[in-house]
Design a protein around this nucleic acid. Structure first.
Lengths: 207, 207
DNA sequence: GCACAACTAAACTGATCAGTTTACTTTCAG
DNA sequence: CTGAAAGTAAACTGATCAGTTTAGTTGTGC
């Protein structure tokens, strides 16, 4: 008895295709990736690949969707409303910064920026599952502490985005445009501390 | 007498080629642009184009360099050190925001992000003539007002980048990823006002 | 008005690549 | 064991495109 694989849509190598496409698209971008490369990387014949996906574009959109979902999952954990901003903001900021400096974070950003002119839904999905989702969660957290009088924020959504941007300052551009991959712990900490201080100087109720 | 055109390197149609390449590269990106398209757009034969530039890559790098120079020129005007931060910051912020929301600003950013993995010097040049130059100018301005005790900033370069990022909050991503081109004056003003307030709450000496 | 450089249209080369087809092999459920 | 579904390698089609070549035309300084 045992493994009734009802869930398998069709084909044994579907996952291999997805994994190969992911690798190649993230490494080479949409234009730079060739279908032959993907098939080779996936360890699958081109004919098999084309039995799953009608064309390169659809395969790419599928990968982009999966990858943005994964991005969303990385930000999954709700912010703990019971912890105060002085605790939550530094740790949330660190997670944001670590993600946008990661290889996968940079690769997805690069592709979203490059291809969202050609494929508008890619830009939309990327935004919704990345910056947009973060804004939603963080603004809810901020609003709940406003209600308690610990924070004073007239527009929590705007404030959430301001905080997120402050966390990326300097290092994100340095990595994206100057290839600086050598960002150490201390430097990250310095940026986040400054972001939190700047944020709380304005939105924190006087201590 | 008259027009001794000593300056002309060679060729009467050099400028046409540049202009055509600019149009097509900014519209279609590096991979998306074809040399035939560029020649047609420039109103020039392919052979002429190839008499000026050895290959597509060099032509692209030339356009990217010119375009980033132009970007730098747009930020040219030094900040007037005699005006106080409450005057300078809102107007500088508006200029930053207007630029990054302009068609040309978005197009150059898209190409810099997409191609700086393939052509590292593009990322470097873009950074130097855009965000880097701005940081330099703005941090000098900030430092000069620190000396007078009006501002209190331990790291003016970091603060300059923080301010620049705050000015782009929300609207830049909305335009880049969601194609929102309909950003009105009021919304821009709201973002800038909030950025200035946030910045001065922390770095301004108490009023 | 001549000589020479700049320019042209168009054809061509060689490469790459998306997507298809063919003839064959592997896998596995019943 | 068997037959159908899934997969394979490799050749093929048709298109695009960077870059070259050819044979001829235009513009211009002198």
């Amino acid at each position: 008895m045992a493994h009734s694989s009802l869930i398998l849509k069709k084909g044994r190598k579907f996952d291999q295709v997805i994994e190969g496409a992911r690798t190649v698209f993230l490494r080479d971008g949409y234009e730079g990736a060739s279908v032959d490369d993907i098939a080779r990387e996936a360890g699958v014949s081109k004919a098999t690949l084309y039995s799953y996906f009608p064309d390169k574009r659809v395969l790419f959109l599928e990968i982009a969707a999966l990858e943005t979902r994964r991005q969303a999952d990385a930000h999954e954990e709700r912010l703990d409303v019971t912890d105060p901003p002085e605790i939550v903001l530094p740790s949330a900021g660190r997670k944001i910064l670590d993600f946008v400096l990661s290889d996968i974070g940079i690769a997805v950003f690069r592709i979203a920026v490059a291809e969202s002119a050609r494929f508008p839904e890619i830009g939309q999905k990327f935004y919704d599952s990345g910056p947009g989702l973060l804004k939603e969660r963080l603004s809810q957290y901020l609003a709940s502490w406003c209600a308690q009088g610990v924070l004073t924020i007239d527009d929590p959504e705007l404030a959430a985005e301001q905080f997120a941007e402050l966390c990326k300052v300097h290092l994100f551009h340095a990595h994206l445009f100057q290839g600086r991959t050598d960002v150490d712990e201390a430097e990250r900490g310095r940026i986040i501390d400054s972001a939190v201080a700047l944020f709380l100087a304005r939105y924190g109720t006087r201590s």
